[in-house]
Write a protein that binds this DNA or RNA. Structure first.
Length: 489
RNA sequence: GCCCCCAUCGUCUAGUGGACUAGGACGCAGCCCUUUCAAGGCUACGACCGGGGUUCGAAUCCCCGUGGGGGCACCA
């Protein structure tokens, strides 16, 4: 994959990377990370690191990259600049490209003039294309500033083959003499990517469909060199959840508001798992008929470029939540425990591994994101809980009645020396039965008293983990709280 | 404005001329389970953009519309 370090690493790039990775693993190839950093003006500090960090987190670390080295390095285009200059000159020698000395000002003027004439397509006017090659060479040698443009044929048409879309035929009259080497000596994408793909022996080019308009240019460049073409695959782009337009910065701000993001590096902090994110993005642009919950290994097994889809896909965060929850439930207790522990630590709670291993099975199927563990299990590690007095009152009862029930619960539980759920549940149920109450009412009071919240993991198992002394003291506090309410109407 | 791509439930998709009464997943609704919340199970709702062809037969092939998306830089 070949992203440019000009901003944050987003979902679209991640999906391309995933498919690159799957294809490489499937076919025994290498998954290479190449940084397209030829636009020094747009370079963003830290984005190279973010790209690599994101890939690592997803679990699709490149086999070869600026970090890992490899046989096809260097993997940063700015470190390969001589190569592009040689290749650009090669094209000039062959008559497939030419130096252009036009100033940005002249180009700008020409553009404006064409616009005023309302031409169908504004393009280079060809002034330097008409130059005598030896004259041009002399001007280059004399140190005059220049760029190199690809000499596009004006006649005929270009047929480019996309693996998903078939032949794409474009009349050459719609094509332009695009700049392939800039005046700073660095190549534009068009040259750099073609040269590197050839040098690095890239067999499949997977990229976003925003490259489709320059696709004819690219095949023309490859053909001008006389090289074999890779398999070209233009993936659909990701649309915003509404399906109207592609994801934008504005949209990402919206997503952040409800705990989502379009940047891979944000997902960890949001409580998402690599498994969930991977599964989610895999299914956008890849048609899997059934059994769509897949691990990375299963994806490798099932991947094929023939089952990729060309149509644009609206992203759907609800589906991400679904896959995240599903993959969380697939984790072993050890694994899940290790993944949620940092959240308790970060919250300043004294988490103990032994207790955590007991808690994890209780909350596993309740988690959508890992950080949900805090809402479901913080009370286990707190010294005290402070329930909302109103919530201690059971439905259909008043504070006095609720206090009576709480007292009875205390009586029953304090009589037991063993507080394991097998021991506590039968007498409690017997009490509910004999008192003519319903389980919701009694267990509800107990739940709020002991956990401090209306929603919690299963009550009796929870009490067992909290421990006898804490359970009893929390219950006593609840009784006091209810009685105080009673006195102040 | 010009060029290009795309088109099946609200969303992601299966479907490659007859196996389609169009399948799955998310979401949504209901039921079951149940001490809360979930999870799980079951059921319901829900689509071939329109019009022409081709063919004995079209969701599938062709054409034209329409709609959506992308692109028109010394950015990638």
């Amino acid at each position: 994959m070949a992203p440019s370090p000009t901003g944050r690493f987003h979902l679209g790039s991640a999906r391309t990377a995933l498919f690159d990775y799957l294809l490489a693993r499937k076919t025994g190839g290498q998954f290479i990370l190449r940084l397209e950093d030829t636009d020094q003006k747009r370079f963003v500090e830290g984005s190279e690191e973010e790209i690599m960090r994101s890939l690592d987190w997803l679990g699709i670390t490149p086999d070869e990259s600026p970090l890992h080295g490899g046989t096809f390095g260097p993997y940063r285009q700015t470190e390969r600049r001589d190569l592009y200059q040689q290749r650009a000159n090669e094209l000039v020698q062959k008559g497939s490209a030419y130096p252009c000395f036009c100033s940005p000002e002249r180009l700008d003027q020409s553009r404006k003039e064409q616009e005023s004439r309302k031409v169908d397509r504004v393009r280079y006017d060809g002034l330097c294309r008409a130059l005598d090659p030896s004259d041009a060479a002399k001007r280059v040698a004399s140190g005059e500033k220049y760029v190199i443009r690809f000499k596009m044929s004006h006649e005929g048409a270009t047929t480019a083959h996309d693996h998903l879309r078939g032949d794409i035929v474009t009349e050459n009259k719609y094509l332009d003499d695009t700049v392939i080497l800039k005046s700073d000596g660095l190549p534009t994408y068009h040259l750099a990517a073609m040269v590197d793909d050839h040098e690095m022996e890239i067999t499949h080019v997977l990229r976003g469909s925003e490259w489709l308009p320059s696709f004819p240019l690219h095949v023309n460049i490859v053909r001008a060199f006389g090289w074999d073409e890779p398999v070209w695959i233009h993936l659909s782009i990701f649309l915003k959840p509404s399906g109207k337009g592609k994801m934008s910065k504005r949209e990402s701000a919206e997503a952040m508001k409800d705990g989502h993001s379009i940047f891979v590096d944000d997902f960890k902090g949001l409580g998402y798992t690599p498994e969930g994110v991977l599964n989610w993005i895999a299914l956008m642009g890849w048609g899997v008929a059934e059994d769509d919950v897949m691990s990375l290994d299963e994806m490798i097994q099932r991947f094929s470029i023939d089952t990729l889809t060309p149509s644009p896909a609206a992203i759907n965060f609800q589906k991400l939540d679904h896959f995240n929850g599903t993959h969380i439930r697939l984790l072993t207790t050890e694994d899940l425990s290790a993944r949620i522990k940092p959240y308790f630590v970060a919250a300043g709670l004294p988490v103990e591994d032994e207790a955590l291993m007991k808690i994890t099975p209780l909350i596993r199927e309740r988690l959508v994101t890992l950080d949900d563990c805090l809402a479901f299990a913080s009370f286990f590690f707190k010294e005290d809980v402070s329930p909302n007095p109103d919530e201690l009152i059971a439905k259909g009862l008043d504070a006095k009645q609720s206090a009576e029930i709480a007292k009875k619960c205390l009586e029953i539980l304090s009589a037991l020396s063993d507080i394991s759920h097998q021991v506590t549940e039968p007498p409690m149920r017997a009490y509910v039965e004999s008192a003519g109450l319903n389980a919701n009412q009694v267990f509800g009071i107990l739940r709020v008293a002991v956990t401090g919240q209306k929603v919690s993991p299963p009550l009796f198992e929870s009490m067992e983990i909290i421990g006898r002394e804490k359970v009893l003291s929390r219950l006593r506090n609840a009784i006091t709280s209810l009685e105080n309410m009673n006195m102040s109407p």
